[in-house]
């Protein structure tokens, strides 16, 4: 996993609430047996019209907006546990998703794939959305060490929460498997004394 410390980037506003995992990556794209290529189909049914042509009114198809930060409406990532949703977002090139609320499983999946979910307050979220919608050049800075997200030009920022263990993992670029495999004795000892 790549290390994550700070990120400065313009952002893409996805001003929609309850974006569920079926929208992020429709089930018909889940047939792959590796993690590659999901980025091409992220938000597939919003990016393309039914006839396969590009839906120019969808924000990802608006060339004014670029960057590795996705800013989305409340309750992002609800729905299924499919990690493909996180792979699709990472595969498209995002490193951070900002929302005022994330579904549990999505949040865990994101962190396990080096994608940082930044949960901000409702007012801060609408500030960011307003800023980027009115000025696509707006730069957002995410500092994981200080757990701080800022809108640079406006000089406003907000602290965000992250599990301290997950933070260490993200900063050092290691994951849960490394940790668990290194703790095999503990697990074996537990199995030996477990009642059932």
């Amino acid at each position: 996993m790549e290390k994550f410390i700070t990120l400065r980037s313009t952002a893409i506003p996805l001003n929609i609430e309850n974006v569920d995992t079926d929208q992020i990556i429709p089930a018909r794209f889940l047939k792959a047996t590796d993690k590659k290529g999901f980025g091409d189909n992220v938000f597939r049914d919003w990016r393309y019209k039914k006839d396969g042509s590009v839906n120019t009114s969808f924000v990802l198809n608006n060339s004014d907006y670029k960057g590795s930060i996705l800013v989305a409406g409340n309750n992002f990532g609800c729905g299924s546990s499919r990690e493909h949703a996180a792979w699709a977002i990472v595969g498209y090139g995002f490193k951070v998703v900002v929302s005022s609320f994330f579904a549990d499983i999505f949040k865990g999946n994101a962190l396990n794939n080096g994608l940082l979910p930044v949960q901000v307050s409702e007012p801060f979220l609408s500030d960011i959305l307003n800023e980027i919608e009115s000025n696509p050049e707006t730069v957002i800075k995410v500092n994981l060490e200080e757990q701080k997200i800022s809108i640079e030009r406006k000089n406003i920022s907000e602290k965000f929460e992250i599990d301290p263990y997950k933070k260490t993992c993200m900063i050092n670029g290691y994951d849960d498997i490394d940790y668990l495999v290194n703790n095999k004795e503990l697990i074996e000892a537990f199995e030996a004394q477990k009642i059932f």
Binding site: S80, S81, R82, E83, H84, A86, I105, G108, N109, N112, N113, D175, D176, I177, L180
Partner: peptide, 10 residues
Amino acid sequence: FGIGTSQVAQ
């Protein structure tokens, strides 16, 4: 409970 694929690997 449901888990993601990284957790399946764990």
